[in-house]
Design a protein around this nucleic acid. Structure first.
Lengths: 217, 217
DNA sequence: AAATGTGAAGAGGTTCACAGCG
DNA sequence: CGCTGTGAACCTCTTCACATTT
């Protein structure tokens, strides 16, 4: 599954998260009125999770964005990164499972500056279905296909359902034409070829920490 | 920051998540009564996110765990991985920020089979502080240090606070002796040398998806 | 002088191919 | 014969060093 946008430029799974890091840092300093950054100052802004060299390598890959002896123009770089990451456009998101997690995600996303739009909410608990949230009514997950059709579809499905339901729901959203899934359920999802799925695995992340804590005794 | 346990074995950030994947798959088949797996069947169980060769490489690194011509004993492998990942012991967890997200995390962890124990909850909203959840009282975040001291400390701090508060809270839990942090706030945390911090970045994950969706137009 | 851009070197994870055992 | 275990080849990302440009 290719991940690229600018002809001839190939971005990968290492690259994109870093570019997002740069974007976030630039948004920050941009607000503070900074108009130029160097690879060194940008690295500093990223809490040194990355080296100046790495930043220059990442950015030079995207074209000639900086000026030697000076640095990078914040505004131009921001716009470039936003376009590359797809953050310059609206994205319609469906949240499946509207328990505490689904609720947290909906709230979090609606407050952010990125153009993530919550377009549909689904659950199956009788006391949750029919609730409204920000003018949106929570639909029954049985009506998934009909609701998506009726509302013009969504770009991304966020799975906040119990593990046992995740695979089935993933299959259904994929069949309904959603090509991107962000899955919070701790299961290994099987999705069709064209679907791009990412997992956020809380227990997995914690086990990285516990491994570390164990090893450094 | 070294990440190892067995003398002479060095695990890294690529390795550990995979080992956790294997562990999860093995728990699954173990329940189904399977007692032996091959590297091929295990790869299949991991939804082919990994190759048989990769599995053999990962496991052989930990010692001679399999039997040629046969495969790997599920029980033994499970025990080995659990010990290595630190999943064979209790871990005390504090959740900071008890909004929807904090609540979701607490609930999620308390239902899991891993030995993650929610040991303390903190917030600062007047209507949240003082609530009880599973016999635990939500404490005011001002009382962080005192509460942790009084309760014997925690191993892991989970940050579910707003971005603007994250850095300060991280500094305080680190100062209180917590060496592992799982941060949900979208900021680049600066933590002391000995603290191991992982970020779960929802917006970052989404932007990987939006980049993909953008590029494959 | 200052900071980018980049070919080359380096490091490290992954895949291959097959030897080694049961 | 079947499947693990592994050295070597491979490949990709990272780092280095410095030429290049303003």
């Amino acid at each position: 599954m290719a991940m690229q946008r600018i002809p001839g430029v190939r971005l990968n799974e290492f690259n994109v998260p870093r570019l997002f890091l740069y974007h976030r840092a630039l948004v920050e300093v941009s607000k503070a009125g900074v108009s130029v950054v160097t690879s060194e100052s940008l690295a500093e802004l990223c809490a040194n999770d990355v080296t100046p060299t790495q930043i220059r390598k990442d950015l030079s890959q995207l074209g000639t964005l900086g000026r030697r002896g000076r640095g990078y123009e914040v505004a131009g770089l921001l716009e470039m990164l936003a376009r590359l990451l797809g953050l310059d456009q609206d994205w319609r998101i469906a949240i499946l499972g509207f328990g505490y997690l689904g609720h947290a995600l909906a709230t979090f996303l609606s407050y952010r500056e990125e153009r993530f739009r919550i377009a549909a909410l689904f659950d199956l608990a009788p006391d949750v279905v029919g609730q409204t949230w920000n003018d949106l009514t929570v639909r029954h997950i049985d009506d998934l296909e009909a609701t998506l059709r009726e509302q013009g579809g969504v770009d991304i499905a966020v799975l906040a359902v119990p593990s046992r339901a995740a695979q089935e729901v993933a299959g259904r959203v994929a069949a309904a034409g959603v090509d991107a899934i962000l899955n919070f359920a701790p299961v290994a999802l099987r999705v069709p070829e064209q679907v791009f799925a990412r997992n956020i695995d809380l227990a997995g992340e914690l086990s990285i920490l516990t491994h570390y804590l164990t090893g450094s005794e």
